[in-house]
Amino acid sequence: MSERSTTSGKPTRWATDTAPEHSQWYVDRFRRLAAEGVDLAGEARLLDTLVPPRSRILDAGCGTGRVGAELAARGHTVLGVDADPVLIEAARADHPGPRWLVADLAELDLAAAGEPEPFDAAVLAGNVMTFVAAGTEATVLRRVAAHLHPDAVIAVGFGTDRGYPLGDFDADVATAGLLLEHRFATWDLRRWRDGADFAVSVLRRPA
């Protein structure tokens, strides 16, 4: 992830909780991990199992583009959005092919950016939900869902010890009009247990 500057005037936690140089550190870190051959495709593998071939996927809070790039390599059409221009610049440099846009998830309006076609799925990986502006979580989920086809899925993963309680997330899911279908403790589908330090939730926009 993710989200440094916004158009709403309300700073994201990516902006308030990290130093200005953190974005470049994040870029450098994932470039190093990729060069070392570390497996960075777990989130993409999961989402790939949830959608038909050649789906249209929204990578919301795309960061440096590693998830969206892997989905594109698997044949999907990907649009990545992130509020941090440093991360979007890195995504464009490292992963040409998908379209990468600077956008505030709390005010997401992709039709205005020339992308009116709905998506078949969305993914919010890399602790995106713990970095959006405090109090905008339900709005973020609602704005992402508004860009999806009915019955589309949203895969969301974040650490449960990062200041956004899972109970609050579930309440925000309901407020956004989404349904929780599955929950796992990791992106490789280890069984969920209460108290796990990470949660992967598969949501669905009602048909």
Rank of each mutant, 00 (worst) to 15 (best):
T7H: 04
V51G: 02
A19H: 05
V78R: 01
A174W: 12
T77P: 10
A90Y: 06
T139P: 04
T16E: 08
R193L: 15
D109Y: 02
A93Y: 10
A113G: 07
Y26D: 03
G159E: 04
L189K: 10
W14V: 00
L203T: 00
A125L: 03
L71D: 00
G65H: 05
T130V: 11
T49N: 05
R66Y: 03
A134P: 05
D161Y: 12
L101K: 08
V202A: 07
A35L: 12
H182Q: 11
P206D: 04
R56Y: 03
E3M: 14
H22R: 10
E107C: 13
T12V: 10
G9S: 08
P53I: 13
G75S: 09
S23N: 03
G157P: 08
T16S: 14
A125S: 15
G65N: 01
V78P: 00
M129I: 12
R205H: 08
H22C: 04
H22G: 13
R142N: 09
G42Q: 12
R4H: 08
V27N: 06
R32N: 11
K10H: 09
W192L: 00
R204Q: 07
A176P: 03
S201K: 02
A41F: 09
T77V: 14
T130M: 04
R99Y: 07
G163A: 05
P150E: 06
R193D: 15
E117S: 13
A174M: 12
N127T: 13
Y26L: 11
E43M: 08
R56T: 08
P85H: 14
S23Y: 04
P165D: 08
G9M: 02
W187H: 08
G42S: 15
A19W: 06
V102R: 00
L101C: 07
A91I: 09
D28E: 14
T12I: 09
V156A: 04
D28C: 13
T77D: 14
L58E: 03
F30T: 02
R205D: 07
V78I: 08
D48T: 12
T64Q: 10
T77H: 11
V144A: 00
L110H: 02
A133S: 07
G68R: 00
F169I: 04
V132E: 00
V128T: 15
P118I: 09
P52H: 15
D151L: 06
I57A: 01
A41P: 00
A60G: 08
D28V: 09
L189I: 10
N127G: 11
V81H: 05
T139Y: 00
E89R: 04
V200R: 03
V102A: 09
Q24M: 05
V153N: 03
D161G: 14
P96W: 10
P52Q: 15
L179R: 11
L180T: 13
H149V: 14
A134M: 05
A152D: 01
P98T: 05
I88Y: 01
F169L: 11
A44L: 05
A106P: 08
W25E: 14
L180D: 02
R29C: 11
A199P: 06
G167K: 12
A15D: 13
D48E: 11
D161V: 15
D28G: 13
L105G: 01
L180F: 01
V200P: 06
R31D: 13
R45Y: 07
N127R: 07
H22Q: 10
A41C: 12
V200H: 03
A60Q: 03
E21S: 10
D28P: 09
G42R: 10
Y164C: 05
A90Q: 00
G65I: 01
